[in-house]
Design a protein around this nucleic acid. Sequence first.
DNA 1: ACAATAGTGTCTATGAGACATTATTGC
DNA 2: GCAATAATGTCTCATAGACACTATTGT
Lengths: 256, 256
Amino acid sequence: MSKYIPASQEEKDFLASYDPAKFAPVAVTVDVVLLTIRDGQLCVLLVRRGGYPYKGRWALPGGFLSSREDAETSAWRELAEETGIERGDAHLEQLGTYTAPDRDPRTRVVSIAYLALLPDVAAPTAGDDAADAEFFPVANLRSAKLAFDHDQIIKDGLERAASKLEYTPLATAFCGPVFTISDLRRVYETVWQNDLDPANFRRKVLSVPGFVQPAAAATRRGGPGAPAAVYVPGTAALLHPPLLRPSLRAKLKDTP
Amino acid sequence: MSKYIPASQEEKDFLASYDPAKFAPVAVTVDVVLLTIRDGQLCVLLVRRGGYPYKGRWALPGGFLSSREDAETSAWRELAEETGIERGDAHLEQLGTYTAPDRDPRTRVVSIAYLALLPDVAAPTAGDDAADAEFFPVANLRSAKLAFDHDQIIKDGLERAASKLEYTPLATAFCGPVFTISDLRRVYETVWQNDLDPANFRRKVLSVPGFVQPAAAATRRGGPGAPAAVYVPGTAALLHPPLLRPSLRAKLKDTP
DNA sequence: ACAATAGTGTCTATGAGACATTATTGC
DNA sequence: GCAATAATGTCTCATAGACACTATTGT
């Protein structure tokens, strides 16, 4: 945005005398749903709350929007504080804004949630406000009583991630800088909770323009099996045609 | 969300003595991108600003988040004020939150944007704060200088709408309660800026489970041509397999 | 009669999915 | 040797897209 220039002296006076306090106070926080894959399980980063309210409960990492930052910058700052990753080391996108009037017992708090995806590398480090930080498999979260409405935010983040794997090359955000087709397939299988045919998956991925491209490095060996060719992310922002979740196909065919 | 219950007397005291004023003041507004199709053109509702800043400029309808409403309720209220439509008469979804620190010259203002889609019925009525309200074809908007960052918000809304037509039955939100397959096709053609083959479109729509279902009413005549069968929206929330934009297919095939 | 639209049928190319097959590794 | 993985090939079925064709309306 270009800088705003008042059109008249009258407007200048208006802006100079403007009093923000006349509106009901609203606090704005930025919370981050950080997803990664560890040991074949989709995990979310949670921190234990050190202060009231919900003291001692697990919650999403986050904090108040600081006065001269936009929300995305705040989200990157939270990520850096909790995990040490720098801006650009992960995928980060806005997830949604949560505004239920009673979602925070202190005062009216509106939370802008972000979704971050990153490879399994960074070890979480507890920030100022958090007594502890830990990755939890999302499958075990059903019974956990999280702070605020963070269970709903995580649920929305998981659905967003699963959906975006269909029509964007975002799955590469869960992999390291180079990866094999099998690495990529395991990401899909983990997020979608579906087994995929290795042969068909390979053919599909390689046929979508701009999804992946062969890496300069030769091959990678690990465990049993032939050595695998390695790839790096391609340039496409959208996958066309998309990969479609088998689970949805089955569900929707049943209810015509 | 269930009501929050403090766990201890200590926490009760904390909440009672909590002072919201210690945070930097942030104002939160809710703005609505209302799209409809008039005379074959995709149009967005704009209101002329009656006060500073950007006095006299066209802007999205919106207002400050009121203290006991969540943002979606505020968006419905804005819609009712500007167009008279009631909650449930249109499709409404959260679009995104805009947080650039200097996007409003008065003070820090965070805007939660909503996307609304509705059939061409409601005539806009000017609200309190707006001198005038009018539908503008989005194709003519490139040169218009809108208030705040509303040009970007509209752009994001258009992309969201085009994208959602692919994998949800949302196109029916632009139609009346009953519609013909051709009505639906014209919605896709207008939003996607693409001609679609009538025969293939019909076959595709009818083959996707839950997209549309035949209406009790017989047929509709209008202008030349045979009378058309009418349909009502189906029950599916997602289209599977989706309809894919021809424009994307062409673009992505060129850059492999 | 004519133009415009509704609706059906047909052909082809492509992609998805199921599955077999061969090659290469670690154990 | 054996199990596991990588990579390629084959077959079938469903779908998208192009397009011809008929039927029914308003003018």
